[in-house]
């Protein structure tokens, strides 16, 4: 007979101290009202509901699957919902080797995303070509699209990918609402030939 090893002393789920609640933005408050700047509220909302678009081509994609799984659970950070259409997504996660032949496709996926959009480059191959120092492999996706955060590793562990997503959240949170209309941003896109 197999001994019973699970749930001998069942514990009641602690749902009160287990829910992550984000901190309140700075502002004026009193009884019945709270006033803060638009930018902070939007940053807060965007930060905690990023829709990632996974662009996984190789082993980093496997690590990403673990990141999405219940153990590491990217959903804890509000990125529960993978969108497999660029039109609705905020964050392009590029994981794996991008060959030169695939570069135009990656670029097209980026162009199809609506502003504001962010790009996370996961792993050595996406960031720099990695070990594939050869004629057929794109030497880093930043040759075709602008990248916000790079995650090093070959492949990076799920913790590292989570760390990258948190860095993206930081960027999203602190981004000025006017940034995407600014000259600096236009010049950045212009340097990639994007209107």
């Amino acid at each position: 007979m197999r001994p019973v090893r699970f749930n001998i002393h069942p514990k009641k789920a602690d749902i009160h101290n287990n829910i992550a609640i984000t901190e309140m933005p700075e502002g004026m408050q009193g009884e019945g009202y709270f006033a803060t700047s638009f930018e902070k509220v939007i940053g807060l909302a965007r930060k905690n509901s990023i829709w990632p678009l996974p662009f996984a081509t190789s082993c980093c994609g496997i690590e990403f699957m673990a990141t999405m799984g219940s153990h590491y659970d990217l959903a804890r950070f509000g990125s529960e919902r993978m969108g497999f259409t660029p039109r609705q997504c905020d964050l392009l996660m590029v994981m794996g080797t991008i060959s030169k032949k695939m570069a135009p496709i990656l670029r097209q996926v980026y162009l199809q995303m609506a502003e504001p959009r962010w790009v996370l480059s996961v792993g050595a191959c996406a960031s720099s070509g990695g070990i594939f120092d050869t004629y057929s492999v794109l030497q880093g996706i930043d040759q075709v699209i602008p990248v916000d955060v790079y995650v090093p590793g070959c492949p990076p562990r799920p913790e590292a990918i989570l760390d990258g997503v948190l860095k993206i959240q930081e960027l999203v949170h602190n981004e000025s609402l006017r940034r995407r209309n600014g000259e600096h941003y236009k010049a950045l896109l212009g340097s990639y030939g994007i209107e």
Partner: peptide
Amino acid sequence: MDYFPLRKEFPLEDQSRIDK
């Protein structure tokens, strides 16, 4: 592509990159 990459006059590595 304007060359034939497996001919031996072409080096294995990508010559266009500068950051490695």
